[in-house]
Amino acid sequence: MAVSRRTFLKIGVASACVLVAARVLDREVFVLGEARGSLDLRALSNKDAACIAALAGAVLKSILPDDAAARLVAINEVVEAFDRTVAGLSPAVQTEMEELLSLLTFSVTRRFVAGVAKPWDQASEQDVSNFLDGWRQSRFALLQQGYQALVRVIMACWYGNPLSWGKIGYTGPPFGKELGLL
């Protein structure tokens, strides 16, 4: 899609302003998100965690366990792995991820940039899928980048987890099986 340099610059400046606003305002009108029980988080806030949990459900769908309780455990493990992943990013990339999560969890930008009306823990799977599709197909690189970063990390967090391997027919590392390490 052709975007003129002038338009692009405007978008660039606007996005930067929105990101800064989201981070600053978020601290002022901070509403505590639904705490995710006993999750031990280093890099993510509880609000971030609720967002990632909602995203994980829509990103992974039927590849998650069918049983409701097992599905909840799986999603919590994705959130914890997401947290570890963010903590392990280089400082520069970690900052980018923090900005992205601020944008998604601050209610104003969640509504107007992500297009999700309800808080993440109340959003339907369809709402979340619509948001992901919107950013995926966006003509703005920043939103496409955001979509890809979120989906990639969630995929990595789930498919790195041996709990996911049964459904995809991955037999796991050879020694682990022999020694019962998995």
Binding site: K61, S62, I63, S129, R136, Y159, K167, I168, G169
Partner: peptide
């Protein structure tokens, strides 16, 4: 391997899951 495949295949949701289920 699962992570490499998971992060490289495009899309998300059922379209992506369908491919992952055929990993072997």
């Amino acid at each position: 391997h699962p992570i490499l495949a998971g992060i490289t295949l495009q899309g998300f949701g059922e379209a992506h899951a369908m491919w992952m289920k055929r990993l072997p």
